[in-house]
Nucleic acid binder design. Structure first.
Length: 365
RNA sequence: GCCCUGAUAGUGUAGUUCGGCCUAUCAUGUGGCCCUGUCGAGGCCACGACCCGGGUUCGAAUCCCGGUCAGGGCG
């Protein structure tokens, strides 16, 4: 299931294998909340070397119904994507003020933008999971925004741990179940949570509730407070983090898996990632720049289109432009992760990290 | 030559009827900041204009006169 191939200090590279699907770690998962990436197809995910994506149980359960997953025997066939599919539990939607109605001891009441409110509780999300049949299901957690008091995080932890334990009761054979640690921005709570979740014997461990507005340094501290208590032989997943510089820092602190909408959302808004820095395609000096976003990039976008054309599409606010820009950033992320894995294998991770961080700032010209 | 119509940021415009709520609207543009387990094809900030001259008035983008320019009509 999870095999570590090589470890350099805390950074490691390995393989996550489930249901005959494989992904080398560390890997980055683009998001496909509703069984589709915004503006990109399953095929484009596959052709950009994306070996894993993450969907969302809450949104998938809404409308029209779960029947389509029953009829196709699961999400892979339904969306015709054959990589690993994670399924998020809906806990993160607690952060959306317009979705959260209330939290009780037993679960979360979420507003359904299209109908009746939905009460997300462990048994329910596990039932949804048994129909969607992802490769990895995330246990239900209780997420609070950044900036709450220690007491509030503590209280949320009790719920998180209770719900996590309950999810384990409904675990199915073909789906791995990952538990999510919480604890806000308090080291002691992070440690308590990591210990508690680790003891429950999940297939993998996630660190949640980060990347929601706290300073990067705080995030790193929280990871350092959690990782020592999470079984070294199980995959560690930092939920929601997608800034390349943060990913590097977190890998060197022992994280294996990431997901985020960040590269996709930024792409749509004209911020393109390259190995020389972040390029802001909205700037007027690209108006007549008939070269690709990144010279040696092998993505569909860079092979076929120029900055001038893509900028034009961006300014037109055209969906086709958003699609091509998204494809580039996804491809970049996969290349980035590949280089990281290679550098760990070749003992050059620290050098790669240093060199990358020096270059990875906004391109000014 | 005469008559009519119009002139507001780089661009396109709102406001002009009936002067004051205009330190002038909106969009776009340009520049900056932001986006982290996606309800949302996004958010915030800055820059930037009343064609020129005179008059009436407490007060003019707005009314009057002259000029310039543009479009249309008549010779």
């Amino acid at each position: 299931m999870f095999t570590i191939i090589k470890q350099l200090n805390q950074a490691r590279t390995g393989v996550l294998e489930i249901n005959n699907r494989k992904a080398e770690t560390p890997f980055f998962m683009p998001v496909a909340t509703k069984a589709v990436g915004r503006f990109v197809t399953s095929e484009e995910y596959e052709s950009s070397n994306t070996k894993a994506i993450i969907a969302n149980a809450f949104f998938l359960s809404l409308s029209p119904s779960l029947e389509m997953f029953e009829k196709t025997n699961g999400i892979h066939n339904f969306m015709n994507y054959n990589g690993i599919i994670f399924n998020d539990c809906g806990g993160f939607q607690m952060l959306r003020e317009n979705l959260l109605k209330e939290t009780t001891a037993n679960g979360i009441l979420l507003k359904n933008p299209m109908g009746k409110d939905v009460f997300m509780r462990p048994e329910k999300i596990m039932h949804i999971s048994s129909i969607i049949k992802p490769d990895v299901m995330m246990a239900l957690d209780c997420v609070l925004p950044f900036g709450k008091t220690k007491e509030e995080y503590q209280e949320a932890l009790i719920k998180s741990h209770k719900w996590s334990k309950e999810c384990l009761k409904y675990k199915t054979k073909d789906t791995l179940l990952f538990g999510i640690t919480q604890g806000g921005t308090f080291k002691e709570l992070r440690k308590d949570s990591a210990k508690a979740i680790n003891e429950m014997n999940f297939d993998g461990h996630a660190i949640g509730g980060l990347g929601i507005g706290e300073p990067s340094e705080k995030m790193f501290e929280m990871i350092e407070a959690s990782v020592p208590f999470l079984d070294n032989n199980k995959p560690r997943y930092l939920m929601g983090v997608g800034k390349p510089d943060q990913i590097l820092e977190c890998i060197s602190r022992g994280v294996d898996i990431f997901d985020s909408i960040y590269p996709q959302k930024n792409a749509r808004h004209g911020m393109l990632f390259t190995f020389n820095g972040i390029l802001d395609l909205g700037k007027s000096n690209y108006k007549f720049d008939f070269t690709p976003i990144e010279k040696d990039c092998q993505c569909l976008t860079c092979k076929k289109y120029t900055k001038a054309y893509l900028r034009y599409l961006l300014k037109k606010d055209d969906a086709v432009g958003k699609r091509y820009l998204t494809i580039h950033n996804i491809y970049f992320m996969q290349e980035f992760m590949k280089k990281i894995r290679e550098s760990i294998k070749e003992n050059t991770f620290e050098e790669f990290k240093k060199e990358f961080l020096e270059k990875f700032k906004k391109i000014k010209e």
